[in-house]
């Protein structure tokens, strides 16, 4: 069998040597209009588009470091789970009455199963010969409805979330062996005023961790008195002297953490 540069290959004796199988690729020259060679003309354009896309993508990764929260703590009761954004619509769907409780099956199997099943079988549900959207109104309307509801569900779900507070509260704490000095006079003040929300090791519970804080000593003293963000004012109930001890204590733990 002759191929390529005229080499003779030892082939199967039952295949006649001069039978030319469809070795020649389709050239698509039957297409009307201004066709263009894939290699190298069109591929170059594709790759240029790809290069621009890549630059944008790398800018995104540089501008937004990938998030990492604190190490998984199964005993953390105050944590509100939230899936990645592309599962938010399912998460939101399960909040509705008709998709939860006794009707949970509708929520987890019925509606998503119907939607994804229809998507999978679309060619068999929409069998007409016409390809233009106005020739198959039912399929197009169903898709638009599904798309709208997914976008709407995702939006509603994301709207209720205070993303910045979430990120602040779940900052990763370095795996350090910080030892809290419980004999420090500031520790007693901390225990009395802050521990309920900020945790026994300053790791943060319902409030952000105090380890790795970016505030200065003066700012911490001010926040303890006046509050910040969701922290109300006057949580700290002590004398100025105790406040001073507290700030010194928090700063000393932070110095140790560095």
């Amino acid at each position: 069998m002759h191929r390529g540069k005229g080499m003779k290959f030892v082939g199967d004796s039952r295949v006649s040597a001069d039978r030319k199988a469809s070795q020649i690729p389709k050239d698509y020259s039957e297409y009307p209009g201004r066709t263009e060679a894939f290699w190298p003309n069109f591929l170059l354009k594709e790759w240029l588009a790809g290069a621009v896309f890549l630059i944008g993508f790398l800018c995104l990764t540089l501008a937004h470091p990938s998030p990492l929260e604190g190490m998984a703590d199964p005993t953390n009761a105050s944590y509100i789970p939230l899936p990645d954004w592309y599962f938010l619509f399912l998460y939101e769907l399960l909040k509705y009455e008709f998709a939860s409780g006794d009707y949970i099956l509708i929520g987890i199997l019925g509606i998503p199963g119907l939607a994804f099943g229809a998507l999978l079988l679309a060619p068999f549900l929409d069998k007409g010969p016409g390809r233009r959207p106005h020739q198959r109104p039912i399929a197009v309307i169903m898709m638009l409805l599904a798309l709208t509801s997914v976008i709407w569900l995702t939006w509603t779900s994301a709207e209720h979330v205070d993303w910045e507070a979430r990120a602040e509260m779940n900052k990763p704490i370095p795996p350090s062996n910080i030892e809290i000095n419980k004999d420090d006079p500031g520790y007693a003040v901390y225990e009395a005023n802050c521990m309920g929300c900020h945790g026994d090791a300053l790791q943060g519970v319902s409030a952000p961790p105090l380890i790795g804080t970016e505030h200065t000593a003066e700012e911490i003293a001010k926040i303890a008195r006046e509050g910040i963000n969701t922290m109300p004012a006057n949580i700290f109930k002590g004398t100025d002297e105790e406040l001073d001890q507290l700030v010194k204590f928090i700063m000393s733990v932070n110095e140790q953490a560095e």
Partner: peptide, 20 residues
């Protein structure tokens, strides 16, 4: 022209590979 396109293609491909 074809050679030029091939060189450019290699360059752009190399840029993408390097970037990744």
């Amino acid at each position: 022209r074809r050679q030029f396109l091939n060189y450019t293609l290699t360059g752009v491909g190399g840029f993408m590979a390097a970037g990744i």
